[in-house]
Structures are given as structure tokens and as C-alpha cells.
Design a protein around this nucleic acid. Structure first.
Lengths: 147, 147
DNA sequence: GTTTATGCAAAACATTTGCATAGTC
DNA sequence: GACTATGCAAATGTTTTGCATAAAC
């Protein structure tokens, strides 16, 4: 029983083709694997999941997908970086520290506030990186149960 | 002409001793080197600067200092992590993308706002990581000059 | 004297690169 | 057919670990 191809794969493949990249089987395999994940992951984890795809291809694909805006990198609380599907443009993540699921925080309005604060430091803001850590409802409930 | 020991060294050494760590020459050397830096740095850079200290000691010291709250890790825009002296408790950094200097953003009031936004996602916030990128005044002026 | 820290070398990881081959357009 | 992507293996780079020795308390 094979999994049918995730509809996102074709969609992301289009994005890549628009940027001049070719439609190849390894890339589709990578996209398919990524589209299925609901948690962040590492390059090595993806590699284990796709033994048929060469290591270099995995790494090259991940970089390419980040550039293309299809993937984003998320920073864990301990400083480790993970990859995760990017569903829209600028956004931030709510990362559950227990189970690892992440929700997207859209409507980020901190930029204007940052600009104000930064101005008083003689600083011209051009960007920011924000990750929010906590617990999703399920994990919060489980946590409360244990206490 | 030797540099005199930076007063911060003794101060940080005290913090470590309170936590049960011993006062050793390599640790002082690391602290001294760190106290002098006004930019973020990597473990390897520190190692090159302190050829007399073993690699393992450098790495072990850095980890220890992060735990002790003396050092903090900063995230660059490209996803690389650097180390940098931590002068106070919870704070964020304004990082100059050109020269690398960083200013501390204190009085971070985003937490309450985050809690609100997150609540609507059924999410219980426990922490966050924020880095702000831009240009310090000098670099902003230099930039304007070039344009 | 007991305990902790250091230095070294080796191991363990993680990521990148060169290059011949295969696949796409 | 021209150009891009892949796979492999090797190179690179970074961080960790085991263990005997040295230093600190």
C-alpha cells in the first residue's frame, strides 16, 4: 500500500521550477517526506528516512528549499536548528517543548515596536528572529495531570 | 606590556565558585579573553586566541559559562550560533549585521503580548528567543555614504 | 588526600566538495 | 545534445569523550 503523493509536493515543485530548478525524483522524494512531517526535523533524520537518496542530495535539497522559501529553519530552546515546512511568508513558531509540534504565529506585529526600542539605541532594524517556546494544549494537560 | 586582569574576571570567577567550580588558570584565561571581546565569537576563534589552553577545556568552559549565565549564545541571521558575554539576566540583542557589535535590549516587554497571541492558539508560553538584526549607527552611516 | 580540571588524542558527528555518471529539458 | 542533478567517497569542520596526569581545595 503505497502512499499517494501529497498535493503539496506538486505545489512546491512548481515553486522550484519557477526558479529554474529541475523536476527530479530525489527532489520529489524529499518534498514528499517533508510534506508529511508535522514536527521539525534534522537533515540526518530525513536521510535515514530516505535511504535511497544520497547524503549530498539531502543536504543540497534542504539548502535549496530554504532559499526557495519552502522550508524554514527553527531554533530550539537549546540552540539546535531544525527544519520545518514553511506554509507562508514571514511568521514565527510556537514550539511545544514536550512533543515538538509547532504552530505558526502569523500577524507578527512586533517589528514596529522593535523599531522604536532600537531607535533609542541608535540602531536601524532590518530584521528579527523570534521563536516562542511553551506547551501545546495536549502537553499542557498531560503536564497538569502529572503534577 | 602585559594586560592587567579585567575586573570582570574576578567577578565571574566568584559566580563560578559559588556554584562549586574551582578557580583555575585556564578558566581565568578564558574569562579574561571573553571579557575583552566586544563582539560575538566562536569557540574556535577563542581557541586560536588561547593556544595555551586545550581544545576540550575551551569547549567545556564555554558550556559551563553558558550554564552559569555568564555567557550567552546569540543567533546570527544565517543560523549560526555565537557566544557573547552576558551582562544581565533576560535580555535580547541588537546585532549589527555589518560589524557584528551588539547592544543589549533590556526591558523586554514582549512576553505579555506573546502570551495573549499564543493563548488563542491554545498554547502555554514558557519562554522565547528573540534576536534583532540591523545596523549600528556607524555602519548605517557608512552604508548611506556608499549608496 | 580527595576531588575536580586539564590536555591530549581519538572518536563521533555534521556538513561540504570534487568529480564521474545519470537524468532532465 | 547541453546543462543540471545525483551519488559516492573523501575532505572539512566542529564538538565530544576516555583516560592518565596535574592542579585545587
Amino acid at each position: 500500500m503505497r502512499k499517494r503523493e501529497n498535493p503539496l509536493v506538486a505545489q512546491f515543485m512548481d515553486v522550484l521550477e519557477e526558479q529554474g530548478y529541475r523536476d527530479t525524483l530525489p527532489r520529489r522524494a524529499v518534498l514528499q517526506a517533508i510534506a508529511q512531517k508535522e514536527k521539525h526535523f534534522t537533515a540526518e533524520a530525513l536521510r535515514e528516512q530516505l535511504p535511497g537518496v544520497g547524503r549530498a542530495t539531502i543536504y543540497r535539497s534542504l539548502k535549496l528549499l530554504v532559499d526557495a522559501g519552502v522550508l524554514c529553519r527553527v531554533l530550539l530552546e537549546d540552540g539546535n536548528l531544525r527544519y520545518q515546512l514553511s506554509r507562508q511568508g514571514h511568521h514565527h513558531h510556537l514550539l511545544c517543548v514536550d512533543c515538538g509540534v509547532s504552530a505558526d504565529l502569523i500577524g507578527c506585529d512586533i517589528e514596529s515596536r522593535l523599531k522604536n526600542v532600537a531607535a533609542s539605541h541608535d540602531f536601524q532594524v532590518s530584521g528579527h528572529w523570534l521563536e516562542v517556546y511553551g506547551r501545546c494544549r495536549q502537553c499542557a494537560e498531560a503536564q497538569a495531570m502529572m503534577a
